[in-house]
Design a protein around this nucleic acid. Structure first.
Lengths: 335, 335
DNA sequence: GCGCATTATCGAAGCGCTTCGACAGTTCGA
DNA sequence: TCGAACTGTCGAAGCGCTTCGATAATGCGC
């Protein structure tokens, strides 16, 4: 493997000249630069990562702390991981993946061994046990998800409260007065999971504001449970004309299948809105109106905020990505 | 951050003594070692990763090449990623995640910058474009999945052919003479995807061997398509008494929901077997007999084989993990 | 045509670690 | 009782890079 020395020799210059030519940190004559570039290309030179880490101030490595709870919905999670790894590459960073208990225990190791320049925390719960830890870590950290206490932390997430309000407002504007809300399984809320709770609470509040009757159910991810949930909604809201889903893809599929077999027509008999979904709802049958959870945007933003801190901007920010509403024809105004 | 120098000073020894004490590569007096250990603990010393990479011969970093096709089934994929990252930790390795095009292009970068000691390739297709690349990479590589030409490569995977045979044999032994096989969506086969093809072909062969009539369908992941597939099976095999699923979890759910609404009783009317599934089938309703695709075992083995190569064992191996059959009561003998 | 700022390049120090060879001090068989 | 063979420890070289502080060489105003 070629070293900077080989390049310097091949180009007939000193190694510091090569280094400056490659980093651009000092001006280099055009002719010299050309010779260096040629030597680099010819030798297939690539700086040694270890040497760069040791001598320089950056490792060009980012830690991604991605714990996985038993109830983590894999496709959504994966989208975030992808978004972050890809965004990191745009800053010439690679991603070290920390899963399971390493998502917590590995962090300190990353920092004290100076392996990474920054950390992105995925799937942050309200009372996440990583939060106290990263508070004392002297390194750029960005949380994707908003914990209960954000003091001193840089966070980014979809504005779930705004998404909930947007859901209620759109449906209320269409004349719906009784709305069913299908949430995630119960234990997710019990665990203090982040956005389902924030969404639910804001939804309840917005419904009250708009004078809309609301019933909330938390089915498990299986047909029988979804069926029971729908029965419960119908019982509790006899005039229900709209349903908002804040749930996983399988629950969407199950609900639509169930409504179809019941002969319910969408949106004529029932308006449906999928809120904070991280999967495409245009493949569903029928396609659903959606307020997307933009994993790509949020994940990328998490990386950007980390890079921003690396560039010396250290005032912590809590960034809420505003929700958007995409129409697919699954809602209509009440007759 | 404490350096080895600080530790040496605190323990009153030279830095080489500290290094040897920590690596165990030379004998160190018990008393000296104790003083060093105490200093390490007290200072919270952790070797600088960059320095270690530069001076030593190992980086303790593993690259995980995980491309993601549009049709990649996230939960299964995730299980592999998890298994590999966790297994790596057991060897004191961290995992650098390469996704999308980096899964291909990043490999050369990893090697020439000496960032990683080894590579694990996930989701290897029959004619994977990473295969020619890794052939010329002078670094330990293990493929999870078996490409068409394995010459010179170390690979590991479930023995899909054996799994297919096992499926047919078990059902044939129970007296089933007409078996439906529900596979993945068509484009997966068209793309030359690895194990679905190997499974299908071996299944066809085994069925012929055992004199079992077989029909093969490839539904999309949506209820209507699954329904059509089942109709096709019934049409083609009027006496069909068993169905083997080599498909994603949603297709399982859809099939079971559909059979339930048709009043089909499992296993009385129809025996069902889930083959090469990477998700738990005991949560389904009803729980299904399964030949699991053991992501944990295969993934971990991928790491182990890489470490083995690092230890100097360089003869390439193709390792096939034998399938196992787990009974959950969804199959029975033909009346 | 003189000093002065600017531009292009170089040498050397040092990042924190591993590892080789040296060397006292100890043990032990002959 | 003497050298051979260990044991335990140290100093120094070097891994490949970045970066600081020279040093020429050039251009500029006056």
């Amino acid at each position: 493997m070629a070293t900077i020395n080989d390049v310097a020799r091949a180009a007939g210059v000193s190694i510091s000249t090569v280094s400056y030519a490659l980093s651009g940190k000092r001006a280099i004559g055009a002719a010299t630069r050309d010779r260096i570039d040629a030597a680099v290309a010819q030798l297939g030179y690539r700086p040694n990562a270890g040497a760069r880490m040791l001598a320089g101030s950056r490792t060009n490595l980012l830690a991604l702390s991605a714990p996985l709870h038993a109830d983590t919905y894999a496709p959504a999670h994966m989208t975030f991981v992808l978004a972050i790894a890809e965004a990191a590459r745009e800053f010439d960073y690679d991603t070290v993946l920390l899963v399971q208990d390493e998502a917590v225990n590995g962090l300190r190791r990353m920092v004290s061994s100076k392996l990474v320049d920054g950390i992105v925390l995925l799937d942050v719960d309200r009372d996440d046990n990583r939060v106290p830890l990263v508070r004392e870590l002297d390194i750029p950290v960005t949380l994707v998800g908003i914990p209960a206490d954000t003091a001193g932390l840089t966070c980014v997430d979809l504005d779930f409260e705004a998404a909930a309000r947007l859901s209620v407002e759109r449906l209320a504007a269409l004349g719906h007065r009784q709305i069913g809300l299908i949430g995630h399984p119960l234990d997710l809320y019990a665990r203090g999971s982040n956005f389902p709770i924030r969404f639910r609470d804001a939804f309840v509040e917005a419904a009250a504001d708009k004078g809309v009757a609301l019933h909330f159910v938390m089915p498990e991810q299986e047909p029988a449970s979804v069926r029971a949930a729908v029965e419960e909604l119908r019982q509790s809201l006899p005039e229900m004309t709209a349903v908002v889903l804040n749930a996983n893809e399988p629950v969407h599929t199950m609900l639509l299948e169930l409504l179809r077999s019941d002969g319910v027509s969408i949106p004529n008999d029932l308006s449906i809105l999928s809120a904070c979904s991280s999967f495409p709802t245009d493949m569903l049958d029928p396609p659903l109106d959606v307020i997307p959870l933009p994993a790509l945007i949020t994940g990328r933003r998490g990386v950007e905020l980390t890079m921003h801190q690396l560039d010396g901007f250290s005032e912590p920010v809590v960034e809420l990505v505003p929700p958007s509403y995409i129409t697919r024809g699954s809602t209509s105004s009440v007759a």
